[in-house]
Design a protein around this nucleic acid. Structure first.
Length: 507
RNA sequence: CGGAGUGUAGCGCAGUCUGGUAGCGCACUACGUUCGGGACGUAGGUGUCGGAGGUUCAAAUCCUCUCACUCCGACCA
């Protein structure tokens, strides 16, 4: 009898997917829950990922003509009230500041004092406060377009939170732009969605479907919400980024007006677009396995770790010198436009423990170097993406030279694996029975991983969305751009339809 | 906000029914033997038993009230 394979993460994905997710985060040391309800502490390995995401995205924003600015954390309540749908969408999840001072009571407890005349809302998103500023900055068509991005934290008081996927406070970027014409604003909306899709696929190695949200799933106050949707390893969908065409709704609410070249006053057309630390959750659930995280090399805070193998003191300095030399050579190597990030792991732990800690963190490559290797002028290397780490002995110079190629291979392999997984679990469904079958777990008590993306016809009727949400917890993730027009009938209602849309359970 | 559950050492838990000096595993510290894929031995440190009241000679344990967190729903990036 073969023994069950030993995994670093318990339970495995198949055994208990939500618990596996939590355990991966713990084992890879990305983040942990904080003393503050629903808020997380992002630890160095997790924050390193976020920093690399920021760098890549920020460069793309700048390439597309945007500049960064910063707006206040607090929004006067009256600002949020300006756009009716927007208020309704966010009112239930706002943190509200009502006082500006603490005073000690007779028991020495601090109690709020100094009530504010107008409560301040901790921003759940910044359309309104940025709109207020835009209205001052825009006078003429010559002031447009206004292309601003901000990196910030926002707060949404969610009832139920999960690390990275939904936290009360999260980090994100929000782009806000104003344009003279509807066409130009639409172009911006689509362009930024492309930027997100490119980032998701080429940096996160996560294939995404670009599309438009249905009215039901639209951003509160938007005319149209575009999104990228990814499939996680439990086959559920995760919205990884959104780009909103806001029409003139917010311009009217915030009085963003300009004189056009005819001398006529017009409202501007605005957009907003954002991605958040939720992307780290997407990364985890796209790539990690039962031994922990797997980080795409282009976002890895560290690419290579060197693990010195030292027995006793007599050859320690020799081994360390050799390791330092390899580290220097690696650091002089260019990968993806900058130098390789390399760690010399000098922790006083056993070799196996150290290697496993890197496995769990998802480090792309590590190499053990001991007296035996030094005798051959070689290293004993391992890579995260292969079965039992695909260990191989490689002459030192050859190893150093091969690292960028191997990283590219890992990056590419991760993308292909995720893409194949999605393809395997995406099906065209044409009957209501098949549809209900597809989205129903065989085991009701402890639902197994099931379902996926269903490409099915939908006539545009919101009642269908309502019905499948209630019956199956399934929603329309998007009306995909790349799906060809085709005559058909709605899989649920039987009404005529012109296009298949993506149905899935979602995070 | 509805339903369920859990709060005991840094982490994971037992002990609670049946009240009687606070336990186990991992981790941690020291020493030794080990070490090329998650070592072992010996010795050691670690607690307001979530909080506040109450019952009792005696409370982690029984009673009342609270607070927090987790999970499942509803809602949502």
């Amino acid at each position: 009898m073969a023994k069950a394979p030993k995994t670093a993460i318990k339970p495995t994905r198949v055994e208990d997917y939500p618990e596996w997710y939590q355990q991966v985060i713990k084992a890879s040391d990305l983040a942990e829950n904080s003393p503050v309800r629903g808020c997380m502490v992002i630890k160095p390995w997790g924050y390193g990922l976020w920093e690399n995401m920021q760098h890549a995205l920020d460069a793309k924003f700048k390439e597309t003509g945007h500049v960064n600015a910063y707006f206040p954390l607090f929004i006067p309540k009256s600002f949020l009230e300006k756009e009716a749908e927007h208020v309704e969408g966010f009112a239930k999840e706002c943190a509200v500041v009502t006082h500006h001072r603490l005073e000690a009571d007779e028991n020495g407890k601090l109690v709020p004092a100094g009530e504010l005349e107008e409560p301040l809302i901790v921003r759940p998103t910044s359309e309104t406060i940025i709109g207020a500023m835009f209205s001052k900055w825009v006078q003429s068509y010559r002031d447009l377009p206004l292309l601003i991005n901000q990196w910030a934290n926002v707060v949404r008081w969610e009832m139920r939170t999960r690390l990275f996927l939904r936290t009360a406070e999260f980090l994100w970027q929000e782009g806000h732009t104003a344009h003279a014409t509807e066409e130009e604003a639409w172009e911006e909306t689509r362009k930024m969605l492309d930027v997100y899709a490119d980032f998701a696929e080429n940096y996160m190695a996560m294939p995404v479907i670009k599309g438009e949200k249905t009215a039901l799933e639209r951003f509160p106050g938007a005319v149209s919400t575009l999104c990228i949707e990814a499939m996680m390893q439990d086959r559920k969908a995760l919205q990884a980024g959104t780009s909103h065409f806001l029409g003139r709704n917010f311009a009217k609410a915030s009085e963003i007006k300009f004189l056009n070249d005819q001398g006529t006053e017009e409202y501007a057309w605005t957009t907003s677009w954002g991605v958040s630390t939720r992307l780290i959750g997407a990364l985890i659930m796209s790539h990690s396995d039962d031994n922990g995280l797997m980080v795409p090399p282009r976002l890895a805070p560290t690419h290579v770790a060197i693990l010195p193998v030292i027995h006793g003191d007599e050859r320690k300095s020799e081994v360390m010198e050799y390791c330092e030399k390899v580290v220097r050579e690696l650091r002089d190597t260019t990968y993806n436009g900058s130098s390789l990030q390399v760690t010399l792991d000098t922790r006083e732990a056993r070799g196996g423990d150290k290697a496993w800690s890197w496995v769990k963190k998802g480090l792309p490559i590590w190499a053990e170097i001991g007296p035996r290797d030094i005798a051959k002028d070689a290293v004993f290397a391992a890579r995260r993406d292969k079965e039992r780490w695909g260990k191989w002995s490689s002459p030192r110079a050859e190893f150093v030279a091969s690292v960028p190629r191997i990283l590219d291979e890992i990056q590419q392999g991760m993308f292909e694996r995720a893409r194949d997984f999605r393809a395997q679990h995406t099906v065209e469904i044409n009957s209501k029975d098949d549809f209900y079958d597809f989205f129903t777990a065989k085991s009701r008590k402890k639902p197994e991983i099931h379902g996926g993306f269903a490409l099915s016809h939908w006539s545009g009727d919101p009642a269908v969305e309502e019905q499948i949400r209630n019956d199956l917890s399934v929603s329309i993730r998007c009306i995909p751009f790349d799906q060809p027009d085709e005559e058909g009938t709605c899989v649920i209602s039987g009404k005529p339809s012109k296009k298949r849309v993506v149905f899935a359970k979602a995070y």
